[in-house]
Write a protein that binds this DNA or RNA. Structure first.
Lengths: 198, 198
DNA sequence: ACCTGAACACCGTTCAAGT
DNA sequence: ACCTGAACACCGTTCAAGT
């Protein structure tokens, strides 16, 4: 007659994900331990197996959550008032803001070793990047979707690369703003020099 | 009266590095095991300690070697005949060539968790990137070193980011060439639209 | 359905001891 | 100087068993 609340408080899966995401603030994904996580939550080390068949499955789920959060930030930024130039700038700032605040999570998201959940990670990544492609489609509708996708991917590469250089220390913090401005300027007019901008 | 050849064949440190670098072709850095490496080389698991105080020290040394190899490739590419535009294109190709052939090594090189050898890694990285900054200085001497460093760092970010998107599967292989071309075009004339290029 | 408890093979790190 | 061998604490994974 006990309610359907199990041994644990009801949602071990989410509890593990939340705790792991919190730990990613301080430690890298390599230091995440299922046993430690389990112990802190108050279950035995074998309990996670119901929800994550192995350690990689939890890392994949963390990556999916990370892309969902990043996608939400980018969608907000893409809805900024103004023309395409303002929205592109806003997206760039949002991207750098997210990646610098969550370097360990971002490193996990872009790791090229995903397990069985690799397709799910790829889907969530594609969804997160949709606002970028949308803005570039709006910016240069005459170029066609091929052009927009190309520009969007190079834009993504630029700021993802910048994020990596920042978090590994190659780009010092005081130089971030000028580099973001320089990078954004390279996408004005979708990469072709605007005719009236000397 | 035995010659100064120790127990092992004489250079355990380099043997460990070589074997680890080879393994990085197939496995990620997370799967590298000092014990496995030691066993395959023929020493006990505690032997590496003479040369690498901990596991991170070996990873740091691998990163330093990786930056040395990357730097050599970039120096070659920067010496390509032709003007700055040709050299920039050549450097971009070399960068993408190296990173796509060694994704695990590159992921290790740009990891933001280096240990006591972090400064050594940073130094080797700066040395590797020098050819990029040099070419941008040559391309736009009137802009001054500040401008060249800015452009060089954004260039580096763009191709390092592209490398990451390729190796994690977001950019499909068949699209690499067009994206590299698109990205390179954004650095013609050091980022400012050339006056005679409509 | 959900979790426990014990077992297995592996790991990095440490250190006294050997040569 | 260079490496061994044993010990320690930790890990992911597996699985029969409990509730």
């Amino acid at each position: 007659m006990t309610p359907p609340r199990p041994y644990h408080h009801g949602n071990l899966r989410q509890a593990l994900l939340d705790r792991a995401a919190t730990k990613l603030h301080e430690k890298g994904a390599a230091e995440l331990s299922l046993r430690e996580l389990s112990g802190e939550i108050g279950v035995t080390h074998a309990a996670p197996r119901r929800y994550f068949p192995d350690r990689q499955a939890l890392l994949d789920a963390l990556a999916v959550e990370g892309f969902a959060r990043l996608g939400a930030r980018l969608r907000e930024a893409a809805a900024t008032p103004g023309g395409p130039a303002e929205r592109i700038r806003s997206i760039a700032d949002a991207y750098i803001g997210f990646t610098t605040s969550e370097p360990n999570l971002v490193e996990l998201m872009f790791a090229h070793k995903h397990g069985a959940g690799a397709e799910a990670v790829a889907r969530s990544a594609a969804e997160a990047f949709a606002p970028i492609l949308d803005v570039f489609r709006q910016a240069r509708p005459e170029g066609g979707p091929q052009d927009a996708q190309r520009a969007g991917l190079v834009f993504l590469a630029t700021f993802q690369g910048l994020a990596g250089l920042i978090s590994c220390g190659i780009v010092p913090p005081h130089q971030i703003d000028e580099l973001v401005a320089d990078a954004v300027a390279r996408f004005d007019g979708n990469g072709r020099p605007a005719p009236d901008t000397a």
